[in-house]
Computed example of a mutant assay.
Amino acid sequence: MRDQAVDRDSGATARTGRPRMVDVARLAGVSQATVSFVLNDRADIPVAAATRQRILDAAEQLGYRLNRAAQELKLARSTTVGVVSYGIASHPFAGRTLLGIQNAARARGYVCMVVDVGDEPDHGADADAVASLLDRVVAGLIFASPGTLAVQTPTLDPGVRTAFSSCWPVDPAGAGDVRAVILPDERQGGNAAAAAVFDAGHRDVLFLGGTPREWATVERERGLDDAARAAGIDPASIPRVYGDYSARSGYRLAAEAFDRRRYTAVVCGNDLMALGALLLLHERGLRIPDDVSLVGYDDQEALAAELHPPLTTVALPHYEMGALALDALLDDEPLGRLAVTCPPVERASVATPRA
């Protein structure tokens, strides 16, 4: 016989085991069917707002949670989304991608199962991760990366829904039912970064680019050219040097460039390169922004806003890309390829050039 204890104030029966829907109904003073309508978000069944709130309060008081496995069997569909992460776990500033995915999933009654395969995965690791997720009958797969890159997915059945955040499939034909490829608008972001110094009146500008021929580097440089033309400047007149997105390369490249001549502004491939340039300029006795204006890219958490002075930069829309990928995966209509705006973040590292 099951142990029971009666709550004399509410009349509800508390059991030593997991609370059931009937317990929520008893505590809320409604039928079990009404509890089911509310907790399963049945929008087609009208329930008074006060009744709905009473049910939610009762469920919270009892610690009731829906049995998702049973629910999925009943609905004949999965409420779990698989996420294949390419090294996001080791890039804290890009963790907002996962936050965006998880928050959007929660709002739709889904949960996420994340597998991180590292930022330089081999195809075997990818295949094992995908197979593990598909074995759990997920509703679809999101492939997510902290930085833009092409990914080689295992060959997927055309019926498997997929979406890509900050990456794209090398072979779209073998990447399942591709619902969306969500990328940052790096060209627009590069334009915004360069416009910050051109609009302030700078014409003697140095560009410290990231890794040559990478998609993000190429697109940000195209944005630089757009901004230069809009300011009436010949893009070919802007000196450009390239590193590897590290602070060390920013320091080295800035040192080599300023050994040759002085510039009034430096536009950097990312915030880390801007940090390296900032250290070099401080060593040379040059003040930012009084002597040299400085612009980064990424708006890295706990970096860009913490520098002295705080760094003007461009934010990557990690959260928005993750949320859009989740919604696109589950929506009826495919979204296709979408570029998400990279907003400029104005801080204190840019000023008008000195006479």
Rank of each mutant, 00 (worst) to 15 (best):
V35F: 10
S10I: 07
R284A: 05
L324D: 05
V151P: 06
C268P: 06
R15Y: 15
A348Q: 15
A236Y: 01
I238P: 03
A43L: 14
G336H: 11
A236P: 00
A14P: 05
D116L: 11
E320K: 06
P235Q: 02
T217P: 11
S78Y: 03
E306S: 12
A328E: 10
G269M: 04
D171S: 04
L329R: 06
A193T: 03
A231K: 07
A247M: 07
E333S: 14
R287L: 10
Y86M: 15
G82I: 01
F164M: 07
V115P: 06
A315C: 05
A305W: 04
L99G: 09
P235G: 01
S237V: 07
I45F: 05
E186P: 00
Y263G: 08
G17Q: 11
P289W: 09
G140A: 06
T148G: 09
Y245Q: 09
G118C: 07
T264R: 06
R187E: 14
V47L: 04
A175N: 11
V178R: 11
S165Y: 08
P158R: 06
S145P: 02
S349D: 08
D331P: 00
R240K: 13
D44G: 08
G210N: 03
R15A: 09
I45M: 15
R106A: 15
D171V: 02
P46V: 01
C112R: 03
S31T: 08
R8C: 11
T312L: 04
D244P: 08
L279H: 14
P19F: 06
N270I: 04
D135G: 14
A305T: 11
Y245A: 05
P344T: 05
T13S: 09
G250D: 05
V38Y: 04
Q300E: 10
G17F: 01
L206H: 03
L208V: 12
R108P: 00
L208F: 03
A254L: 03
M21C: 05
G29I: 09
R337H: 10
L279C: 08
V38C: 02
L62K: 01
S78K: 02
I142S: 03
L253Y: 02
A236E: 12
L294Y: 13
A196I: 03
L281Q: 00
A328P: 04
A180Y: 09
L326M: 15
G201I: 04
P235Y: 05
A33M: 15
N103S: 14
T153Q: 14
V137D: 15
V24K: 00
P353F: 12
G118R: 03
V267R: 07
L39K: 00
Y86F: 15
E333D: 15
D135E: 13
G285E: 08
G223A: 02
K74V: 13
E60S: 13
T148Y: 09
M1N: 11
